[in-house]
Design a protein around this nucleic acid. Structure first.
Length: 278
DNA sequence: AGGGGTACCTGCGGGC
DNA sequence: TGCCCGCAGGTACCCC
């Protein structure tokens, strides 16, 4: 479901409400959520009475840091949602899979229609060593992520640029919506090989990555249909309303009025303007 | 090593 | 109405 801007929004909101709260109770009704081989009873026992220190993000992963050097990692995959609020309200969610009862009686829950989401309990010191995080590329909004770093990572890739943008090992956090939006913004054809981009295109791509992702965070993510992303209070993201290509097949390009096309690429829908993304 | 296909799940909307 | 198909924000794992 969520890409970098959606996870960032969730993490910002969680930080305001979870910091310094204590976990009083744990509920889990979908065994496969827990990826690591840990007994459910042990998992619950470990979390109980632990204080939450802070919440952060790495790529599309939510990292909930607890006392005693523990981190609860949550990946929402396609349809995962984090909810926060009154138990009586949250219990009505038909896709509730996991929740924490906090010491203010509020609930932080994971709802997930398609059951792809996963939860991992790890030690802080092994954070950068675990499979899920060790191969991730740089954060595209970090200060250290310069144009030169982008070029360095893309100039030798003999793969189509859209696939490269979505590869978490190359750059972390970009998924199908924002890969499409970024390439429209940069006026680059999604099927062009990464290594064939010229200097000007790399510059445009770099600017587009920064612009699209930070604007999407400002608009608190994208909600395009009912099943899609919500923030922890159930509110929709506004970026979907100002998106340029994603799921706009057959509609007019906002730059040149040509019809937006859709093609399947790597099993995913690619939307682009055939005229200004040559 | 890296690419392609498929698996993991559920629900919705369109075509017949 | 009802069934079958394609499609959905993501990743992991298999095979070659």
């Amino acid at each position: 479901m969520p890409e970098l801007p959606e996870v960032e929004t969730i993490v910002n909101e969680l930080n305001k409400v979870l910091k310094n709260r204590k976990i009083k109770e744990v509920f889990l009704n979908w065994d496969k959520l827990l990826k690591k081989r840990i007994k459910l009873e042990d998992f619950k026992k470990i979390l109980k009475n632990k204080k939450i220190l802070k919440v952060s993000r790495r790529a599309k992963n939510i990292l909930i840091e607890l006392e005693n050097g523990l981190i609860l990692l949550i990946h929402l995959k396609l349809t995962g949602r984090i909810l926060y609020g009154e138990k009586s309200f949250i219990e009505k969610d038909p896709y509730l899979r996991f929740y924490l009862v906090l010491d203010n009686q509020k609930i932080m829950a994971l709802s997930d229609l398609r059951k792809f989401a996963k939860i991992l309990l790890i030690k802080k010191e092994e954070l950068e060593k675990i499979e899920d995080l060790k191969d991730l590329g740089p954060e595209p909004l970090a200060k250290e992520f310069t144009l030169e770093k982008l070029i360095e990572r893309l100039k030798n890739k003999n793969k189509k640029i859209k696939e490269v943008l979505m590869d978490q090992k190359v750059i972390a956090g970009i998924g199908n919506i924002y890969a499409n939006e970024i390439l429209w913004e940069a006026e680059i054809n999604p099927f062009k090989l990464s290594k064939d981009l010229n200097q000007k295109e790399f510059e445009n791509l770099y600017k587009a990555i920064r612009k699209v992702l930070s604007l999407a965070i400002k608009y608190q993510g994208s909600t395009i249909s009912d099943e899609m992303y919500r923030d922890i209070y159930g509110k929709e993201g506004e970026y979907g309303k100002i998106r340029k290509v994603y799921q706009r097949e057959g509609e007019k390009c906002f730059r040149c009025q040509s019809k937006i096309l859709r093609k399947v690429q790597n099993g995913r829908s690619t939307f682009y303007c055939p005229k200004c993304q040559k």
